[in-house]
Nucleic acid binder design. Structure first.
Lengths: 190, 190
DNA sequence: GGTACAAGTTGCCGTTGTCAACATCAGGAC
DNA sequence: GTCCTGATGTTGACAACGGCAACTTGTACC
C-alpha cells in the first residue's frame, strides 16, 4: 500500500485503530493524534470524518452496540437458552474489550439527538434483547418485556464490571454470581 | 479566610473541589489545574498531596466507596427492608453524583495494592452489603452471601446506569425495572 | 533562636485538542 | 483533453493540560 495523499478509508481506519488502542493501551486513554500517527496520517486528518474527539468516542460506542446486536442475534439462532448464550457471549466480549463495553455503558447520551447513529444502534440492540426475553418467557405485554430486558442488561453489565475488578479478595472470580443463571431468572420474571 | 502561603487543608479541599466539578461540569472531565485554580492555589500544589491525576481519581473513588458504606449502614438501622432502603438510596446517590458512582464502578483496580486506601474502602462497602443480605435472608454460607451481595451490587449499578440514559424511547423511566424489588429477590436467592 | 522538613510557588517541557489556511486529488461539465 | 469544484489531507499555530525541577515560605521541634 503506497502512501498516497488521500487515504481513502480513513474513517473506518480511525475507528479500528482507536478501538485497538482501547483494547491494548495500558491506561485506556485514546489520543486523536496518536491514533492518526499510528495510521500514518496527519494529526488533523480525522477531523474530516469526525466532529472531534467526542465524535470518535460516540462512533466507538455505536460500534459496540452493533456488536452487541450481532451477539444477540447469534444467540437467538442457537439451540438451547438464548439468554444463557447471550450471557456467555457478553462476558466474553467484556473480557476482550472491557473499555469498549465500559464506554457503551457509561456514555451519556442524555442530550443527544434521538435520530443519531449511536442512539439508533442502542435501540436496535435493545430490541434484540427484548426478542431474546420473549424467546425465553413467551409473549409478554410490551412494558413487561422491556422491563425484563432492561433488568438483564443491567445484570450483564453490572456483573461484567464486577468481574473487571479481578483478582483476589471478596470479589474474586469464584465468588461472583452466575450471570447466565441470574439473567434467565430475570427473563422469566422470577 | 485570608490567603496564606500555606493553605493547610489542601488535600480535602482538592477532593471536594474535584468532586464538585464531577457533579457540575458539563463534560465531566476534571483538570488538575482547573481544580487548583478554583481553590486559589498554584497548579502544582496538589502534587504535594497526590502522586498525580490518577491519584486524585483514586481518592475520589475511595470517597465514593465510603459514602456507599455509610448509606448501607444507615439502611441497616432503618425499620423495614434494608435492601429496599439501600436500593432507594443508591438510586438517589446516582442521581446526585452519577459520575462519581460511574468512577466507582469503572475504575480498574486490578493492578492495585490490596492494602491501598481504595481497595480497603471497597472491601468495607462490600462487607456492609453482605450484612444487608444476611439481614434479608438470614444467616448463609459465606460464599453464597458473597454471591448474592455481588448480584445486588451489579443490579444496583446496572439499573442506575440504564437510568442514566434518561429520557424517551425504549429506556424511558417508566419502563425500567424496579431496582428495589429485583434487589430483594437477589438477596433471597430467588 | 536556629534549623530541618513540609507545603506552595514559579518556570519549563512535551503532548494534546482544535482552528485556520493551504495543498492535493478525483470526477463531471464543457 | 481541460478546467473547476468539492472532498480529503497537510502544515502551522495556539491555549490548556499533566508533570518535573528548582526555588521560597512557613512551621514545629530541639
Amino acid at each position: 500500500m503506497q502512501r498516497t495523499y488521500h487515504h481513502g478509508k480513513l474513517k473506518v481506519a480511525v475507528i479500528a485503530a482507536a478501538r485497538d488502542r482501547l483494547r491494548t493501551s495500558a491506561d485506556g486513554e485514546i489520543s486523536l493524534r496518536e491514533v492518526a500517527r499510528g495510521i500514518g496520517v496527519s494529526a488533523n486528518a480525522p477531523y474530516r470524518h469526525f466532529p472531534g474527539k467526542d465524535g470518535l468516542t460516540v462512533a466507538l460506542a455505536a460500534e459496540g452496540y452493533r456488536e452487541l446486536t450481532a451477539i444477540a442475534e447469534r444467540a437467538l439462532l442457537q439451540r438451547g437458552s438464548a439468554v444463557a448464550a447471550l450471557a456467555a457471549e457478553y462476558s466474553r466480549f467484556w473480557q476482550e474489550e472491557p473499555r469498549l463495553l465500559g464506554l457503551v455503558g457509561s456514555e451519556n447520551f442524555a442530550g443527544r439527538d434521538p435520530e443519531s447513529e449511536v442512539v439508533l444502534a442502542r435501540d436496535e440492540w435493545f430490541a434484540a434483547l427484548v426478542a431474546i426475553v420473549e424467546e425465553e418467557a413467551g409473549r409478554l405485554p410490551a412494558a413487561e418485556a422491556y422491563r425484563r430486558a432492561a433488568a438483564i442488561w443491567a445484570l450483564l453489565q453490572g456483573v461484567a464490571q464486577l468481574r473487571g475488578f479481578g483478582g483476589r479478595g471478596l470479589l474474586s472470580e469464584s465468588l461472583l454470581p452466575d450471570a447466565a443463571e441470574l439473567a434467565r431468572k430475570a427473563a422469566r420474571g422470577r
